[in-house]
């Protein structure tokens, strides 16, 4: 464990909690892409199946359980409890255009052609593009609630910090995972436009609205 990975995980946890609280407190999921949240629940489900097969550490197990529970609670709030506030007309990204390439890539490019490994690879590739329905929805509505931008900031920051974690681990532990690094780079690059708007607008007290 290193400082980049720890702050990365905490940033990820913060994002997940911010979103859950936003929906719960405002009793509304306006501006939130349910499709992205379903994809994140799928990412955690396929990646954390090893919860039952291998024990890494208490921290690892506890965080995985929290992530999975929050992900499904968020999906439930969007499509169940507060579905009247779900903006389906703007949440129209064709997720099959993500899932099919990701499945193919996971089957073709992986560390080992074994079920658990292919599921892990699928979850890594899927996570790198899972935010696209949410970013697409914001581009369609032309704006985002400030709390939603904070959610996106911490979510984008988490994988950016993981990039530094991988540099650290390569240098100090000789650990290197090309699949995770390439997917992590793609994931972080997808946030660049948002990061620019967040820093130049939201941090200056303005509302995030598009076109910039």
């Amino acid at each position: 464990m290193n400082i980049f990975r720890l702050t990365g995980d905490l940033s990820h946890l913060a994002a997940i909690i911010i979103l859950l609280l936003k929906i719960w407190k405002t009793r509304s999921c306006a501006g939130i892409s349910g499709k992205s949240q379903i994809l994140f629940a799928l990412v955690f489900t396929t990646r954390y199946l090893d919860l039952f097969s291998s024990f890494i550490s208490l921290y690892n197990t506890v965080m995985k359980v929290i992530y999975i529970m929050c992900a499904y609670a968020t999906v439930y709030l969007i499509y169940g409890k507060f579905k009247a506030t779900y903006d389906g007309n703007h949440d129209t990204f064709r997720v099959e255009f993500l899932l099919i390439p990701v499945v193919l890539l996971a089957v073709l490019i992986n560390h080992a052609f074994a079920p658990m490994e292919i599921l892990w690879t699928f979850s890594i590739y899927l996570e790198s593009v899972a935010i696209l329905p949410q970013l697409f929805m914001i581009s369609k509505t032309g704006e985002a609630e400030t709390i939603t931008t904070h959610y996106l900031f911490f979510l984008g920051l988490y994988r950016t910090l993981y990039l530094f974690n991988w540099i650290w681990r390569f240098y100090f532990e000789g650990f290197f995972d090309l699949i995770a690094v390439v997917a992590g780079l793609v994931q972080t690059i997808l946030y660049c436009d948002f990061f620019y708007l967040y820093i130049t607008k939201v941090l200056k007290g303005k509302k995030l609205s598009l076109p910039a």
Binding site: D9, D50, H111, F176
Partner: peptide, 10 residues
């Protein structure tokens, strides 16, 4: 490369 069998990152 990553240790096979288990990935220790979240």
């Amino acid at each position: 490369s990553a240790e096979l069998g288990h990935h220790d990152e979240l």
